[in-house]
Simulated scan of single mutants.
Amino acid sequence: MSTTRRTTTLWRPTGPVELALVADSGYRAWPPRLPEQPIFYPVLNEDYAVRIARDWNVPASGSGYVTRFEVEAGFLARYPVRRAGGETILELWVPAEELEEFNRHIVGRIEVVREFHAPA
């Protein structure tokens, strides 16, 4: 009998402050949202995450990172896929108060797969 859980790959563009908090968790959890951040939104494809990390995080904070992580697919079924623009601009909206539970369904570690930095 297999104990393998079916997972879905998600990506999250992030800046250096949030990434430091992820590192503090051992790359196993996303930090709580700030009061002005009512939603945690992982995205469904790497290209969209790259665009946000490169085009938004770098100008805002000097660097941007693309992370990849796996979440139990059955758990994710509660979050409808949201289109935030074009056909491939897809994300999930996780209410801030559900983030702790969301983190419990991450399988493995959160990995940094791309990084971008402002020119020196």
Rank of each mutant, 00 (worst) to 15 (best):
Y41F: 15
T4Q: 14
I89G: 02
N45M: 02
E97D: 15
P95M: 13
E98T: 03
W56D: 15
A120M: 08
V66I: 08
P42K: 07
G108C: 12
V71C: 00
P80C: 01
T67V: 02
H117M: 04
G64F: 00
W56L: 14
A96W: 05
N45D: 15
T9K: 15
H105N: 11
V66Q: 07
P31C: 03
P13C: 10
L90V: 00
Y27S: 12
A84M: 13
R33S: 11
A73G: 04
T88V: 11
T88M: 13
P42L: 05
T88L: 14
E46D: 07
G15F: 02
E91W: 03
V107D: 02
G74K: 01
V22H: 07
P35E: 08
A20V: 09
V113L: 10
G62Y: 09
S63F: 00
A96S: 15
A77P: 03
L10F: 01
R28E: 13
G85N: 12
R28N: 08
D24F: 03
S2G: 05
F69T: 02
A53S: 14
L34R: 11
Y41E: 14
F116M: 06
P119I: 01
A20K: 15
T4V: 11
E91M: 11
V113I: 15
W93L: 13
L44D: 04
N45C: 13
A29Q: 04
F116P: 02
G85Y: 05
T4I: 09
E100W: 09
H117L: 02
E87W: 06
R104E: 14
R109T: 08
T14M: 02
T4Y: 13
P80L: 09
G15I: 08
V50E: 00
L34M: 11
F69M: 03
M1Q: 14
E100D: 15
D47A: 12
R28L: 11
A53R: 02
P80N: 13
V81M: 04
W30I: 06
Y48S: 10
L99V: 13
F116Y: 14
Y27P: 06
P59A: 07
E72M: 01
L92R: 06
Y41M: 15
R114W: 01
R6A: 11
G64Q: 05
R28I: 10
R51P: 05
P13K: 00
W56S: 12
Y27K: 04
D55T: 05
T3W: 10
D24M: 12
E70D: 12
A73P: 05
F102C: 00
A60M: 15
T14K: 03
P32S: 08
R5Y: 07
I39V: 15
R33L: 01
S2P: 09
E115G: 01
A49H: 09
E97F: 11
V81Q: 04
G74D: 12
Y41C: 12
R68M: 04
A49M: 09
V58F: 10
I110F: 06
V58E: 10
P35T: 10
T7F: 02
E70T: 02
A49L: 09
A53W: 00
S25N: 00
R5T: 11
P32V: 04
F116Q: 04
R83A: 15
V22M: 03
V66P: 01
L10V: 10
P80Q: 09
L90T: 02
E36H: 14
L92P: 05
L10C: 07
W93V: 05
A77C: 11
E18Y: 03
P119C: 01
D24C: 03
